[in-house]
Design a protein around this nucleic acid. Structure first.
Lengths: 214, 214
DNA sequence: TAGATTGTTAATCGATTAACAATC
DNA sequence: TAGATTGTTAATCGATTAACAATC
């Protein structure tokens, strides 16, 4: 059954709602109104209500929203209640840092393996995980039901590797390579183009310096 | 003099134009029309022309755009022709990885220092740069005219540290801490919320699985 | 000159905000 | 019940796309 399309603008805001609701929950706060959330998060109450209502009515008129319930519902919408097996492809600086730094397990991800094509790295332990050669990827992905690949390899090989990952059965790619991947539209890609982000920051800094506005 | 406001939607697209134009330039291609660029980049020719015209006429009617000229102009708009002194605050996994992985120098950034409050890290060399104690930050920022801080510390201390950085004279923060900073509006903040990005990917994977559409 | 393609205005589309009736 | 606040429709705003006159 095909439900109505939710815009990516709304999806992008869900993790932030999730984060704030988690904080309220941890503070022991039980209920929150869209107006209160609006004050804390600096977005309009109207947008909050519109966003939540994309997924059905989570609130009660005259009362507001139950923090814990809303938190859990948004978690479900984001799919955090499901387990997702994940591998990191590219065990260089960034791949290693993500392996150590991201708390994958905390959000329902299962970090299954770390791959590289540099023989010097084979066997090295990172976060209790041995670096494996890329050749093992096809078998490993099928065998372990991997659905997410974190792509942290140089852009020269990223497009080709992404296409292979798709063949092996991956469902989504978290792409840190500074290039646009070429994969079928049923494969989900989330790009993290760090240098683009930094350029945007520089633009805004320079622009502010030039005319004191933004 | 205050020029007309350019929307962040447009700014966000500039680095991608810049990247594609750089590739065309490297291939030795001299001219490109909005339609050709549209085919390569999968955005409408109309949007391309609208975007460029926010900054004045870069093209020639009947001819198109000179690749090299356009590339350089967009670089200037993004402020890549100016030098920006930068420090990394937080020398953990992510801070170290960014120091090694980002080619700061390539885009006009000058990587000046790396700071942490963990004494075990003091003096360690990362990318020819010694990790310094956070206490040195106030003096260092003023002395070295630092305008960008890369914030790679845990979220618990990020808000307070950001406020300090502002006092010391920073102009922009590239924020990797998973929290919203509280700084004056003249300070530019670019957030990289990695776990938000990963959650969005999961949402899209699950949604596709559920109803075969996106 | 004729053809091509920009620059720019107008039309459309989508997202955000405002308003208010429904209802807890 | 009266007051509060949602859910939802309507109005507004902004961004994207289409169209075409200007012009190289």
């Amino acid at each position: 059954m095909e439900s109505k399309e939710i815009s990516q603008a709304v999806i992008s805001r869900l993790p932030r709602y999730f984060r704030y609701l988690g904080e309220l929950k941890d503070e022991g706060i039980e209920r929150v109104s869209s107006q209160e959330l609006s004050d804390i998060m600096k977005v309009t109450a109207s947008q909050i209500r519109q966003d939540f209502n994309n997924f059905g009515g989570f609130g009660q008129q005259g009362y507001g929203y139950k923090v814990e319930y809303l938190y859990e519902e948004i978690g479900k919408i984001l799919g955090l209640d499901k387990k997702h097996n994940l591998v990191i492809v590219g065990a260089g600086n960034l791949g290693q840092a993500l392996a150590n730094y991201m708390n994958f397990e905390r959000r329902g991800f299962i970090f299954k393996g770390l791959f590289d094509n540099n023989p010097e790295l084979f066997g090295r332990k990172i976060k209790d995980m041995t670096v494996r050669p890329m050749e093992e990827l096809p078998f490993f992905i099928r065998e372990n039901n991997i659905d997410i690949a974190v792509l942290t390899i140089p852009k020269t090989s990223a497009v080709a590797v992404a296409e292979e990952l798709v063949i092996y059965g991956i469902k989504g790619i978290w792409n840190f390579a500074h290039v646009d991947l070429n994969v079928p539209k049923e494969i989900q890609v989330e790009n993290v183009h760090l240098s683009d982000s930094l350029m945007k920051l520089v633009y805004n800094i320079n622009r502010y310096e030039q005319d004191g506005s933004i």
